[in-house]
Design a protein around this nucleic acid. Structure first.
Lengths: 145, 145
DNA sequence: CTCGATGCAAACTATTTGCAGGCAC
DNA sequence: GTGCCTGCAAATAGTTTGCATCGAG
């Protein structure tokens, strides 16, 4: 426990940036969640815990966390960007029901090979991938959509 | 040639919607392009051809074209949503250079199998997928990024 | 003729940014 | 003490929407 804070600390130190209570609280909040979250979700979650952190700080902090490898951008939903914590989790892809919005995560090891092939054939240094599959879940199918 | 217009016509007819010059011009413009485009790109492209079509109409038309299977949403770039025409092209995935923004398209047949597996194992009806691979292209690697 | 579609401009909303004060180091 | 960080509020910018008018069917 707490290793995400260690990573944050190290990441900031390496760039001579400051380890502030706000940045720590944001990371704590993110890793206390187990869902896909928006900036607003974080803001309200922190607020409930009596942590008054401005949206601006959240917006300014997220890119740092992404570049530190703690957080990933998942997709857009209703005009909002959704994120997830990636540290400490195996990489996974998303299967989404277009009708009800439900998201199922699944592993897809084959994509490692795809990455390797692209790297070799095109000379790219590949940093990662994002696979999103869209469809209709069983429940929504029977409801007829 | 013109089959995208046929599809548009049929799609609109089936829903008792109108086949307007604006909708036709938008589809023509989209299929005259061979890149990823934003709403602004379309707007300016049409304007250059002396077609004064409002942004609002473009925003209102794109969802129709997506649901008609003519157009797909690719990804976000600088806060803008980018689209591509999908009709008449084999499905492909995108490999993107994070440094220069260049996008390389590639086919990935393995994903058909992934879709099939998900459909079988989870009972979803799968409609499609979007794979985006991120990395650094050879040129940007040598420039050191 | 009728109602859906368009253009315009105003409204919305997520995100970014300038600035004055605060605090990590 | 210095300069990065924060909160606030204002600015941005993409997208949506209300409404009067237009025109496809």
């Amino acid at each position: 426990m707490g290793s995400e804070l260690d990573i944050l600390r190290e990441y900031l130190a390496r760039r001579e940036m400051r380890y502030t209570p706000e940045r720590e609280a944001i990371v704590r909040e993110i890793f206390a969640r187990h869902d896909h979250f928006s900036v607003e979700d974080l803001y309200l979650g922190l607020r409930q815990k009596k942590q008054r952190i401005s949206r601006a700080s959240i917006y300014r902090t997220l890119p740092l966390l992404i570049s530190a490898g703690l957080v990933g951008q998942v997709f857009q939903e209703n005009g909002q960007t959704l994120y997830e914590h990636t540290y400490g989790h195996e990489h996974h892809c998303h299967l989404r029901c277009q009708a009800c919005g439900q998201v199922v995560e699944f592993a897809e090891p084959v994509l490692q090979e795809v990455e390797a092939r692209l790297a070799q054939e095109l000379g790219f240094r590949v940093e990662g991938h994002k696979l999103e599959v869209n469809g209709t879940c069983p429940a929504c199918q029977s409801k007829g959509r």
